[in-house]
Amino acid sequence: MPDIRIPAPGGGSLWAERGGTGNPVVLLHGAGMDSRLWDAVAPVLRAHHDVIRYDARGLGQSSRPEQPFSDTEDLRAVLDHFGLRRAALVGLSMGGETSLDFALAHPDRVTELALVGTSVSGHVWPHDARTSAYAAARHQGNASSLARLELSIWASMGRAAPGGELIQEMVEQNAARRITSERYFAHTPDRDAASRLGHITAPTLVVHGDRDHPEIAAIAERLTAEIPDAQGHVVPDADHYLPLRTPERLTELLLAHLSPQRREPV
């Protein structure tokens, strides 16, 4: 499948891949990762959908930013590049946050939302020793500490669990890139999806692993309660890297949600 280079707003390019036929679905990965997060999910989805995945600005094979950028504008550039007026968005963590913000800003362009272990703009995270150290490593630009803490906090099932080798590889390769990218990320004070969840109009699936960070579970509960008609599912034996830990179960949930009938999965 050929690599695609999409011009990024303000300069540079976004790496993307497209394959399959059917209704369009865009896969968005989390911070400190890249599109390989979807390696075990994308091939099955492509049998039923037109699937696009891309590396967020500065991560994976996308170019590093040299000026402030917007993740939602990058997503719009991806849709526009492929001539897609509307698409379903499947986002994990940061990718889910981007998807939510985009759905609030452009509700007419989102057919369905699937939020996996997602974060939410405007959500206030509680502080503890490990998450404080994690934040400090990001702000201080300490890539080795950031990678180590990313793996211990978010990939708690370890290297021996399914997908462990690829997870470690992605995290270590993207740690320094993430630090650079986040320095140019345009933080806008008015981005506050947490207070506007009731305005989401797209059919929404909320998924998280039972071994993810406890605050992710709290966010998932809030999303399910406040987004109209949202469906929530907890996946056993999965931490934050759910698409690589339990790809079969996640794919089953996604196919049921993204199908025209949106059958409730067993």
Rank of each mutant, 00 (worst) to 15 (best):
60 G>S: 10
62 S>C: 09
63 S>R: 05
63 S>D: 15
64 R>K: 10
64 R>Q: 15
65 P>F: 13
65 P>Q: 12
65 P>S: 11
66 E>I: 10
66 E>F: 03
66 E>V: 12
66 E>K: 07
67 Q>E: 13
68 P>G: 12
68 P>I: 12
69 F>S: 07
69 F>I: 08
69 F>A: 07
69 F>N: 05
69 F>W: 14
70 S>V: 04
70 S>R: 14
70 S>D: 14
71 D>Y: 08
72 T>S: 09
72 T>V: 15
73 E>H: 11
74 D>L: 06
75 L>A: 09
75 L>G: 11
76 R>W: 00
76 R>E: 10
77 A>H: 08
78 V>N: 10
78 V>K: 08
78 V>D: 10
78 V>C: 09
79 L>H: 06
80 D>G: 09
82 F>M: 12
83 G>T: 10
83 G>P: 08
83 G>K: 08
84 L>H: 12
85 R>T: 12
85 R>S: 14
85 R>P: 03
86 R>W: 01
88 A>V: 02
88 A>N: 09
91 G>A: 07
91 G>R: 04
92 L>E: 13
92 L>A: 14
92 L>G: 03
92 L>H: 03
93 S>L: 06
93 S>V: 09
94 M>G: 04
95 G>I: 05
96 G>C: 09
96 G>S: 09
96 G>F: 02
97 E>C: 13
97 E>W: 03
97 E>D: 11
97 E>F: 00
98 T>A: 05
98 T>V: 15
99 S>A: 15
99 S>L: 05
99 S>P: 06
100 L>C: 04
100 L>H: 01
101 D>W: 05
102 F>A: 01
102 F>W: 04
103 A>S: 12
103 A>I: 01
104 L>S: 05
105 A>F: 00
106 H>C: 08
108 D>K: 09
108 D>N: 12
108 D>E: 15
109 R>M: 06
110 V>R: 00
110 V>K: 00
111 T>V: 07
111 T>D: 14
111 T>P: 00
112 E>C: 11
114 A>V: 07
116 V>N: 02
118 T>N: 01
119 S>L: 12
119 S>W: 03
119 S>T: 15
120 V>T: 11
120 V>K: 05
122 G>S: 08
123 H>S: 01
123 H>A: 11
123 H>I: 10
124 V>G: 03
124 V>D: 10
124 V>W: 02
124 V>E: 14
124 V>Y: 01
125 W>L: 14
125 W>A: 10
125 W>T: 06
126 P>S: 13
127 H>D: 15
127 H>F: 01
127 H>P: 01
128 D>Y: 12
128 D>K: 12
129 A>W: 02
131 T>Y: 04
131 T>G: 01
131 T>K: 06
132 S>R: 13
132 S>Y: 00
132 S>C: 06
132 S>G: 01
132 S>T: 15
134 Y>W: 15
135 A>D: 13
135 A>C: 01
136 A>S: 14
